[in-house]
Design a binder for these strands. Structure first.
Lengths: 239, 239
DNA sequence: TAGTGGTCTAGACCACGAA
DNA sequence: TCGTGGTCTAGACCACTAA
């Protein structure tokens, strides 16, 4: 019946079984049954341990749940903790249209604070990129980004990217984890002018160190209008 | 040589092997070698697949790393994303001494907002607990907690707990994940008086929904002094 | 060359759930 | 009773690493 089975003859057997099961359950709603282990043994002509190895991987991924005595079933999607996102991604996720105005982008020398945060030496070359970030046509945030120039050859040429994280991803350096510091403050006169709010209005300040594997690739300070932005967090999910 | 092996004869074999290996590597620094699989086969007199099952569990836990052709080694600890913590735990983690003053704790009826957040019906019985929270002797935060009374029989009797999350843990309802909303604002006159700051000073507002499994067990609003508190986040860890 | 983990076989018995 | 996943055996060959 299952004619697609013998197609993917390349690769390790447990991978074949795993990917077959993945494709079978792709359209399944949570709670629907996956093929039983012995069923797959017959289908692929492999040992049961091989099938179990395949299923183990899918269980570890959270796609399947085993119920002893009953079978294996499509698991309900796990809750995920707050992912690492860029401004662009976050605004789109909120259904808003993100825009950016570059105030300046220039080569500079690292001061003590930025040097420590980036793990480089004071005076090393960095890129300082300042943007006014808008959402749905109105100012949302002012962002100062500091990047290690050594890691980003030719970054200032060739036009600035629309999304920093997209550009970093192209270089294989998309941040996988970040350390943020979130503080409340009141806007300075300059910030108030740029954000089009009253001087002394409340703002949310976000300081970020972003890492790709073990390397600090981005240090930034963002100042958000508190009347348009609240930070949404989900912590400790997984289950 | 290894005399402790035959002691724990109870339980499943792969569990015995797993716990033996866990105890062996407990004192090992990252990178040190774990027993090899065939070594454990001889030691326990079990099949290699059984040993692999035991090791798989420790690898999945992040305690071990396999290196094909070389062996199995103690992994360096994984980075963890920001965990779910209470005020008490967070202040202690920062090396500060937390204290609390209960402003009031009373039975009340759920309004529409709290009812929706707790997943109950408007008018259902809730507990409203308001505290001034101090750290190292000075005001840090004002906190309003709303709890589903049905889940916490006798909570208002017997004296209020020092740490809410400890008390919930005793009832098997310690939050495992939370949804937070973080906003910047300026203090009201009343807040300014309680927090001993100037009226109009910046404050950080945290709204929390805390869940134990699928049940909403806590809804709270906390207002932090921005001159004493910044939120520290680590997102997307787990390597 | 010897040892390691990665893969795989062809069975087996068990406890449990549903019919 | 029958099918399920959970556990376990006693081997095997492979690619890779290190000496």
């Amino acid at each position: 019946m299952e004619q697609g089975v013998t197609v993917g003859v390349r690769g390790l057997k447990h991978v074949q079984v795993r990917e077959y099961v993945r494709s079978v359950i792709a359209g399944g709603s949570p709670g629907s049954a996956a093929p039983s282990e012995r069923e797959l043994v017959n289908l692929f002509g492999v040992a049961r341990m091989t099938v179990r190895q395949a299923m183990d991987a899918l269980v570890a991924e959270g796609l399947l749940e085993r119920v002893p005595g009953r079978g294996t079933f499509v698991a309900r999607p796990r809750r995920t903790a707050t992912p690492v996102t860029s401004f662009t991604e976050e605004m789109r996720h909120r259904g808003m249209l993100p825009e950016s105005v570059t105030l300046f982008a220039r080569r500079d020398q690292a001061g003590p604070g930025v040097a420590r945060a980036l793990g480089i030496t004071v005076g090393d070359a960095i890129i300082h990129w300042k943007r006014l970030r808008r959402a749905d046509g109105a100012p949302m945030c002012i962002e100062d980004v500091y990047l290690n120039e050594v890691l980003l050859p030719g970054f200032l040429q060739g036009g600035m990217p629309t999304s920093l994280y997209d550009d970093l991803a192209d270089r294989g350096m998309r941040p996988t984890w970040v350390e943020d510091n979130i503080a409340a403050d009141v806007a300075t006169a300059e910030e108030a002018g740029q954000l089009e709010i009253a001087s002394g209005a409340a703002v949310l300040r976000q300081q970020r160190r972003a890492f790709a594997e073990e390397r600090a690739v981005e240090v930034s300070r963002s100042t958000y209008r508190s009347d348009r932005f609240t930070l949404r967090l989900r912590l400790g999910a997984g289950e």
